[in-house]
Design a protein around this nucleic acid. Structure first.
Length: 583
DNA sequence: GAGTTTGAAACT
DNA sequence: CAGTTTCAAACTC
């Protein structure tokens, strides 16, 4: 939706133009070869490209027939359909938002596997587009790998992407756009849709989503400006792959599907990095600074995020590049063999968080998968993965002296609320440190508070950025109004089930540009249908207890006993007007 | 910008 | 599984 705006069609036109141009570039044999080169072995990769092409082609041509491909894989078909609708709507320039949120949710019924993939669709309009395009390719006798197909289902919403891509003036085509979870983080956020400005420094990135079922390649076609950025975004399944029926993406192929991004980034990492830092929107992409790991270990944020290192990185001896795809994949596989969840999102968002009501956004809705092990930071600094991910600590955490503003491990689930009271306990020091981290969060608040205005906007709010979202006022502890926000952060993660927190860029980076994505958009059907108890402050459905298994109490960071208390707390909170958009 | 702190990742 | 080392981000000055 980001691309849609008040300007309505005008904007759309620009977008199309841009895309068209990029597409052409991409299509050119030379360019195509370039991209294929590194991925050639990988069907997925190829597919991705194809998808990309299709995507753009679709946009350019304005085709709406993607829909006629119901037979495609579950996620895909629906995606196409939705996408088509979105396009239509967009064309009419009237309901961009619907596209993202309404459309997706509404369409579900028509889809075969809709139930399963619904969540995915929401998150990935972009992918949907891809899917559509893919279909196209198929017609053109281009084989699409299954992997890709799956990917499509997860594709991020097109709406958002377009914006990012489209910025007319943007030199950077960073496609941050879409990104899957991981990408999200990278790409994300930063882009203020309205200001659609891309950080040139963030050329395309390869995103390898470990578990991602969907891979999206944004075509940042403009290679010139982007240094060949082919961004591929992969989205992870909202739910456990097994649940969705989607294969876990450990498949190398899938991994391979990445954005092929540039090989040009290698020069002067420091300069690049510096440039990025100074850049107005440095936050756009993740950048590492690895010196010894060759960017082939989880120490490397890029690698861990499933993306290739890019120009902005200051890494040394980096192997996390398309040219070393095989190495990357092999390493990745090795790591996964050791720990299958190594590349899985670290933050698990509980179902409830996805509630549509802003009020329902609870901080506790998401929790770190493994929990942190902080000893000295009090879980108040980004050293803490929980804190960094914008989620509260849970019983899974082994932290000491937990003061996580998003929720303490001891059970203070609802930071927002409790924070008010508990914060008192927090010494000034803690606060200051917290404030420092959240300095920019405040800005975000407005956006969150007016999700509707912003949401569509976020081209990709995907991503890590959530942290930022938890904005407390920079100067104070989290205001009540912010409570929801806190919770929402998790919501930002596109996937209700899984998110990649680790990639959340520093808050500071995101805050500014961050645009809210409605959680519900991302919320999988399952979650919606069955809201966890926590789900909603406002709405506690009878089914509230039917929480999806994955979201155990532990996930929520609440012990069974605590659950009830938490619930009470939430319920006690009527609603947060500020957070609840009134339109 | 350099140095320190921190905690995850990796290793033993 | 626990302890130690390595690593790079986060943070401080």
């Amino acid at each position: 939706m980001s691309h849609t705006n008040q300007s309505g069609e005008a904007a759309e036109c620009d977008w199309e133009s841009l895309i068209t141009t990029e597409l052409l570039n991409f299509d050119s044999p030379n360019n195509a070869n370039t991209y294929r080169k590194s991925l050639t072995p990988r069907t997925a990769y190829y597919t991705s490209i194809t998808s990309l092409q299709q995507q753009f082609g679709c946009i350019v041509q304005g085709e709406g027939n993607e829909m006629d491909n119901p037979s495609t894989q579950p996620g895909e078909g629906s995606c196409l359909t939705e996408f088509a609708e979105c396009q239509d709507r967009t064309a009419s320039s009237s309901q961009e938002n619907d596209c993202l949120g309404g459309t997706l949710s509404q369409k579900t019924s028509s889809e075969p596997a809709s139930h399963m993939y619904r969540g995915m669709r929401r998150r990935c309009l972009v992918f949907e587009m891809v899917g559509g395009r893919r279909k196209h390719l198929d017609e053109n006798s281009i084989s699409v790998s299954p992997t890709l197909t799956q990917s499509d289902g997860n594709t991020p919403s097109v709406d958002k992407q377009p914006n990012s891509i489209r910025t007319p003036s943007d030199s950077s085509r960073c496609i941050l756009p879409g990104i899957g979870l991981h990408l999200n983080a990278l790409a994300s956020a930063p882009k203020d849709l309205k200001v659609v400005k891309h950080d040139a420094s963030i050329p395309g990135r390869l995103v390898i989503a470990p578990g991602s079922t969907a891979t999206f390649r944004s075509a940042m076609a403009d290679q010139d400006s982007f240094h060949q950025p082919l961004a591929l975004a992969t989205v992870e399944p909202d739910i456990d792959p097994s649940d969705s029926g989607l294969p876990h993406v450990e498949d190398p192929n899938q991994s391979s599907a990445m954005v092929v991004y540039d090989e040009f980034n290698q020069n002067s990492p420091k300069k690049k990095r510096r440039r990025l830092e100074n850049d107005a929107e440095p936050e756009a992409c993740k950048r590492c600074n690895c010196k010894k790991s060759k960017c082939l270990k989880l120490y490397c944020e890029c690698f861990a995020a499933g993306v290739y290192c890019v120009e902005p990185c200051s890494c040394q001896d980096c192997f996390n590049k398309p040219i070393h795809e095989d190495t990357v994949l092999a390493t990745r596989k090795q790591i996964e063999s050791r720990n299958p969840l190594a590349f899985a999102p670290k933050v698990i968002r509980s179902a409830d968080s996805a509630t549509e009501d802003d009020s329902s956004k609870t901080p506790a809705s998401a929790r770190h998968k493994r929990g942190c092990n902080c000893k000295k930071s009090g879980c108040l600094k980004k050293y803490c993965e929980c804190y960094q991910g914008g989620v509260g600590c849970s019983i899974n955490c082994r932290c000491e002296g937990c003061k996580n503003a998003f929720g303490r491990k001891d059970g203070s689930i609802f930071m927002g609320l409790e924070a008010e009271f508990e914060d008192d306990e927090i010494d000034a020091q803690d606060r200051s440190s917290r404030d420092g981290n959240k300095h920019k969060a405040v800005i975000q608040n407005e956006t969150e508070q007016n999700p509707e205005s912003a949401p569509p906007a976020t081209p990709l709010s995907f991503g890590r950025p959530l942290v930022q979202r938890h904005s407390f006022s920079s100067k104070k502890k989290p205001p009540r109004s912010s409570l929801p926000t806190i919770g929402s952060s998790s919501g930002l993660y596109a996937i209700p089930g899984l998110v990649k927190p680790q990639f959340l860029p520093p808050q500071s980076k995101f805050d500014r540009h961050f645009e809210t994505v409605q959680e519900d958009e991302l919320l999988p059907d399952i979650l919606q249908g069955n809201r966890s108890p926590i789900s909603g402050i406002k709405s506690l459905s009878p089914n509230s207890k039917r929480v999806s298994p994955p979201h155990s109490h532990s996930d929520l960071g609440i012990s069974p006993g605590r659950r009830s208390s938490r619930k009470l707390i939430l319920q006690s909170i009527p609603s947060f007007p500020s957070l609840t958009p009134q339109h």
